[in-house]
């Protein structure tokens, strides 16, 4: 970056405000979870791990968290093959009606979440599968699928089609070409996409809220339902679970593919 002093002052002022705004809730939730008092005060009443001890005893929280993990796993397992194949197809082939298919596959983003959630609630209700966990996983997969397709197309456009032709020319049949040339080339995209799918499903709130009932409540919905009453530190301690998951996801993403890939121009 080059430029004058006034440019860096303006840039840095705006960036600092953005940084503070982005980080404040995370830092505060982390801090509040270690408080020694019964309610959250400022300055805090000393440090303690009592709220963590308390939430580790609560079976409803643990079960909600396990259910949330299950939903995220189902979502990711479905999204990986579906999104990878669609992404490769869009990136590599001149598909007829390409524009139409693209717009169609962007529907999960253009239909508001409340619309998608209610639509899925109505059809799952008609099918009689409401109240089970796997439809919630499928729903999370549908609404975030464009992320997976995007990630794959982004890395598939870097794949030289000549490589596949060369493999075929050397006698590789179609599946072998796919598994030894195409798939390894798009692997960074598949990893990025599946991490995104997992973490977004883990955090998915509105669609979960519409599709779960009291017996299969997921953790974000449970937190939302408990928020209305007085602010107590046990909720902060549960929220730290999400912060930890997010930190792990960021770490993995950086290690496996590098966060910089999000800066690449397409």
């Amino acid at each position: 970056m080059s430029g004058s002093r006034s440019k860096s002052i303006v840039l840095w002022t705006l960036v600092t405000i953005a940084l503070v705004t982005l980080s404040a809730p995370t830092i505060v939730v982390l801090g509040a979870s270690f408080t020694g008092g019964n309610i959250i005060t400022f300055p805090p009443d000393g440090l303690s791990l009592r709220w963590y001890a308390r939430i580790s005893q609560a079976s409803d929280l643990r079960n909600a968290f396990l259910r949330t993990l299950q939903v995220a796993t189902i979502c990711t397992i479905v999204a990986i093959p579906v999104g990878t194949l669609a992404g490769i197809a869009l990136a590599k082939y001149a598909v007829r009606f390409e524009k139409t298919i693209q717009i169609y596959l962007l529907l999960p983003f253009t239909i508001p979440l409340i619309g998608s959630g209610i639509g899925l609630m109505l059809i799952f209700g008609k099918a009689g599968i409401l109240g089970q966990l796997w439809p919630v996983g499928i729903a999370c997969c549908v609404i975030n699928l464009p992320f997976m397709i995007w990630a794959v197309t982004a890395s598939a456009t870097g794949l030289d089609p000549d490589l596949e032709l060369a493999a075929a020319n050397c006698g590789a049949p179609p599946l072998q070409v796919f598994f030894s040339v195409t798939l390894p080339a798009v692997m960074p995209g598949v990893i990025t996409g599946s991490l995104l799918m997992f973490i977004l499903a883990l955090n998915e709130f509105l669609v979960s809220l519409l599709l779960v009932d009291a017996r299969i409540v997921t953790l974000p919905v449970l937190i939302y339902n408990s928020i209305r009453s007085i602010i107590t530190p046990d909720l902060a301690a549960i929220s730290v679970v999400f912060i930890a998951c997010s930190a792990v996801a960021v770490f993995l993403l950086d290690r496996l593919v590098g966060l910089d890939i999000f800066l690449k121009s397409k």
Binding site: V29, N203, F205, P220, I227, L235, S239, V250, D254, L259
Partner: peptide
């Protein structure tokens, strides 16, 4: 800057809104 961006991005709306309630 990337980490400061992704960390909140991967933390759901509910938890972030809860953070604002505390503040």
């Amino acid at each position: 800057l990337l980490i400061a961006l992704f960390l909140p991005f991967f933390i759901g709306q509910v938890v972030r809104a809860y953070g604002w309630l505390i503040i």
